[in-house]
């Protein structure tokens, strides 16, 4: 179980402190898929970065399975079972897709093993496995590879930051399959997905709405989703930005 207790995070802008996360307390119990939504700039990515250890809170504490991880490095947290798919994946000159997946598993895996992770995010493994993770990949391809690295980690807690961004409609339904599959095999682990997508929200066990750096609403999907439907926090599939569905039905 992941627990945040009174977590606050400030940044300094032009000599002035600005609070990005203000006193957030929340729990992500084991065996749950939690979807975090809320307006842009609300602090969702910052929250994920705090959990992964990329940013350090100014006050409050973060616990994983009752162990205080607040002062742990990114590496230590990764080793304890936190995996994080970035909203904006990083490009590397020279490092190949296979290298990244191999590093993610932490083992000397075979090409065949690596290919399975790519196949599950809808990439034809043969075409991608020895590609460099550089600017020759499109945003959508990069995003799917990022998701594959988190699948490859097989971590206790997997965090996905807006996994649907830049992904076309066909792979979007693939993506839902991926998360549904993860949900089925969740066992003692948990999943956090940051998303505005109605379909992703609809597979959640719990929904948390983050607004202005604070929890604006929180509860089981059936309680929260109706109030979000039709708003920017729960966008129907056919209104996904950059997606052309070919008809205007929705």
């Amino acid at each position: 179980m992941l627990e945040l207790k009174n977590v606050s995070f400030k940044v300094n802008e032009d000599g002035q402190d600005r609070e990005i996360i203000g006193n957030i307390t929340l729990k992500v119990p084991d065996g749950r898929l939690v979807v975090i939504t809320g307006p842009n700039g609300g602090g969702k990515s910052t929250l994920a970065r705090l959990i992964a250890g990329i940013a350090k809170p100014d006050s409050g504490s973060i616990l994983l399975d009752d162990e205080d991880i607040t002062d742990m490095s990114i590496t230590e947290r990764a080793k304890r079972g936190i995996a994080f798919a970035f909203q904006q994946p990083v490009r590397f000159k020279g490092i190949q897709v296979f290298d990244l997946i191999r590093l993610a598993t932490g083992r000397d895996i075979s090409m065949t093993d690596a290919c399975q992770y790519l196949a599950s995010v809808g990439l034809c493994a043969r075409d991608y496995i020895d590609r460099e993770v550089n600017s020759s990949l499109s945003g959508g391809e990069l995003k799917r590879i990022e998701i594959a690295t988190v699948l490859a980690r097989g971590s206790k807690l997997s965090i996905f930051d807006e996994p649907e961004a830049g992904i076309d409609l066909w792979s979007f339904s693939n993506l839902i399959d991926v998360f549904e599959g993860m949900r089925r095999n969740i066992k003692g682990g948990s999943i956090i997905i940051i998303s505005h997508q109605e379909r992703i929200l609809s597979i959640a066990d719990e929904i948390i709405v983050i607004k202005n750096g604070a929890v604006a609403d929180q509860g089981p999907k059936d309680k929260i989703l109706p109030s979000l439907t039709g708003t920017a926090d729960a966008v129907p599939e056919c209104r996904m930005s950059g997606v052309r569905t070919g008809d205007d039905k929705c």
Binding site: A52, T75, A78, K79, P89, V90, G106, T149, R153
Partner: peptide, 13 residues
């Protein structure tokens, strides 16, 4: 961010 990404995969700096 390249170093950070690989650290999230469990590598040391």
């Amino acid at each position: 961010d390249q170093i950070i990404k690989l650290m999230t995969l469990g590598l040391s700096e």
